[in-house]
Design a binder for these strands. Structure first.
Length: 515
RNA sequence: UCCCCGAUAGCUCAAUUGGUAGAGCGAGCGGCUGUUAACCGCUAGGUCGUAGGUUCGAAUCCUACUCGGGGAGCCA
């Protein structure tokens, strides 16, 4: 949008409106930036504004002189998040954030902000979540949501580039799917319908028309889980492929995850580092992933390696707690000592808070470890893998791990019976590395009419409501399969976030839906 | 549904274990020419989550409730 000088009486002269991400191409030129004050510092005759404009951050320097005199007084105490247009010369400057700064000659206040609630100091989660709409502007959420955007773009590209057809599946769905207690019920002109928790059954129908299809949209789970891994509304991408075996589907999943990791590394390496992510661990996301059957996993969990691993983990964590206690004591002494600069005290106090947080996380983990040892050792063939079991398997491998062939009883009715062992089904979960746990669940689908019907009757499903689904096994039924990837869990894993609520713009969790 | 932890200024936290409620940031005013969470001085800001109870006396101990955090089950 072009700006006329008349609408900006305080601008010294007309100059090109640009954005911070393009400043390196405009060194020495006069430009105008439009943005918000992220932070400001001022002394008697010089002021610094850290401006953010949506594309990056840039330091704007205002020296007091005849040109800046008319607005220098305003600049001296610009509240955080004041919207401004600043004009000046771009100047390459090592000392500045981003390497370039603006030597300001003109400034217009577009909107003077009031008392902005989020300060550059630490805040608690509850407070930040209540101000999610403003928190977007802070660095950390800004980086995370950009990476999320790239991951979603890569998801679409991956399937579109490989000839998959996008099939949008309904969000209002009859009770079909798995257990109704985890579904949100909605009144649909007097009839009960449910918010979809998967598009899979609908997708199976479409894959018999287009061969390779996928759906991508929000799904809803009414599970009463209050943990760092759960949302009630989350995004899932589900591909479905005709004439595909279990291993074909797993190969796609493997290729898919690698493509996401590569894309994020290519586009956001610096941002990952800024978020504190260990980039080497993402570089390690390469084919082939580990593959083990459920039965192998069960034996592994009961074996000596897991016990040793957990015992070593316990020892390491106990040692770390002792280390933290020493650090905390030291920091507290610094914070309370006389003759120490105030900013050093602040820093020590802030570090002490972080250390205490890490310590309380660790001590909770330490109390849980013996329980996890017991759960792993007592694992019974036939029961589903628990959260702690998955975490153990995932942490003990340097790349993602496929767990395949679960017992029939813990999986959904549509999964294909293993023809060589009818106790298990041809399915897989993909566990992300570094303990992030399950990000994909998939399977080959039962293509045999009689086996499927028997299974549905065994599960006491209302067969009449699934007639359309059974039709797929009456007319040209072929082996096929697919999987679902949880977008938020993937973002959490790639960004190294311990809580899923930061991976989605407006998290919906049990008991929380504001803003 | 169950288990554990927490709630003190707008924000982040402290209060020597039951004895007059404090600091930093933020806000307001003043000072400072290169700051990086700037710094220095001054000012305002509180029914200690709510309701009971114990006590001469409760932010502190007890009970219930509300809200938040973490976990189990279940799941992407």
């Amino acid at each position: 949008m072009l700006r006329s000088p008349r609408s900006h009486p305080t601008l010294a002269r007309m100059s090109t409106v640009t954005t911070i991400d393009r400043l390196s191409e405009q060194n020495e030129q006069d430009v105008t930036l439009q943005g918000w004050v992220y932070n400001s510092r001022a002394s008697g005759k010089i002021a610094f504004i850290i401006l953010r404009d949506g594309t990056g951050m840039c330091q704007c320097v205002i020296e007091k002189n005849e040109q800046t005199e008319p607005f220098f007084g305003d600049v001296k105490r610009l509240p955080q998040e004041t919207a401004v247009e600043v004009t000046g010369a771009v100047n390459k400057e090592e000392r500045s954030v981003g390497g370039y700064e603006l030597r300001v000659t003109g400034l217009k206040i577009v909107h003077a902000a009031g008392d902005y609630p989020i300060t550059p100091k630490p805040h608690g989660v509850e407070f930040l979540m209540k101000h999610r709409h403003l928190w977007f502007r802070s660095k950390r959420p800004w980086h995370i949501l950009r990476i999320r955007s790239t991951i979603i773009d890569q998801i679409r590209r991956f399937y579109n580039d490989r000839g998959y057809v996008l099939i949008d599946t309904p969000i209002f769905a009859p009770a079909a799917g798995e257990g109704a207690q985890t579904l949100f019920q909605v009144d649909y002109f007097g009839d009960p319908v449910y918010l979809a928790q998967t598009g899979q059954l609908y997708l199976e129908a479409a894959c018999m028309a287009h061969r390779k299809v996928y759906c991508f949209g929000p799904t809803f789970r009414a599970e009463k889980s209050k943990t760092r891994r759960h949302l009630t509304e989350f995004w899932m991408v589900e591909p479905e492929i005709a004439f595909a075996s279990l291993t074909d589907v797993m190969d796609v999943a493997e290729e898919f995850i690698c493509s996401i990791a590569q894309r994020v590394l290519a586009d956001h390496r610096d941002e990952l580092i800024e978020l504190g992510r260990n980039v080497e661990e993402i570089e390690a996301i390469q084919k082939p992933f580990h593959r083990m059957t459920y039965t192998e996993a069960a034996d592994f969990l009961k074996g000596p390696k897991v016990k040793e691993y957990l015992e070593r983990d316990l020892a390491d964590k106990t040692a770390r707690v002792a280390e933290l206690d020493a650090t905390i004591a030291e920091l507290e002494e610094t914070a309370g000592k006389q003759g120490v600069k105030q900013w050093q005290k602040d820093k020590a106090a802030a570090e002490a808070i972080d250390a205490r947080e890490e310590r309380s996380d660790l001590s909770e983990q330490i109390t849980n470890i013996p329980h996890h040892v017991k759960l792993a050792a007592d694992f019974q063939w036939g029961s589903d893998l628990g959260g702690s079991d998955e975490t153990i398997l995932s942490r003990m491998h340097d790349r993602p791990v496929f767990i395949t062939h679960y017992p029939k009883a813990c999986k959904a009715f549509y999964m294909r019976e293993d023809r060589s062992d009818d106790r298990v089904v041809e399915c897989f979960d993909l566990l992300a590395s570094q303990g992030f746990g399950e990000i994909i669940g998939g399977s080959a689908r039962e293509e045999d009419y009689d086996r499927l019907l028997a299974r549905m009757k065994h599960e006491k499903l209302p067969v009449s409501e699934y007639e359309w689904y059974l039709d797929l096994r009456r007319y040209g039924s072929v082996p096929h399969g697919g999987f679902g990837l949880g977008v938020e869990r993937t973002v959490a894993w790639i960004c190294g976030l311990k809580h899923i609520r930061e991976t989605i713009p407006y998290p919906r969790m049990m008991g929380k839906f504001y803003p």
